[in-house]
């Protein structure tokens, strides 16, 4: 699947394929929503002085998104490692 790069899916009946694509879409939008919430919490001040996002906040947002993705990747790798080594409670 193309979105988060979770490897290519083998040939499946069409409903299953559509369901898988839909699930991936859900994952992506969920990740986006969490990202918006978290970066808003960390980067933008609550005392709304003006209606525009200023430069410092914009830079903060850019870096927040970049770091979030890095964390995503690293956690994924760690989970794979833990899962394969069986230290994760035998899942």
């Amino acid at each position: 699947m193309s979105f988060l790069g979770f490897g290519g899916a083998p040939a499946q009946p069409s409903e299953a394929k559509i369901a898988a694509a839909e699930a991936e879409l859900d994952l992506v939008t969920d990740m986006f929503n969490r990202l918006v919430d978290n970066c808003h919490q960390k980067c933008i001040s609550k005392s709304y002085n003006e209606g525009d996002v200023n430069k410092n906040e914009s830079l903060c947002i850019d870096r927040c998104v970049s770091k979030y993705f890095e964390v995503n990747v690293k956690v994924g790798e760690n989970m794979q490692k833990l899962g394969s080594s069986g230290a994760f409670g035998g899942r």
């Binding site: 003006e50 525009d52 996002v53 200023n54 430069k55 410092n56 914009s58």
Partner: peptide
């Protein structure tokens, strides 16, 4: 300079 607005 950092307080100037920046479009999305």
């Amino acid at each position: 300079y950092g307080a100037k607005p920046l479009g999305p």
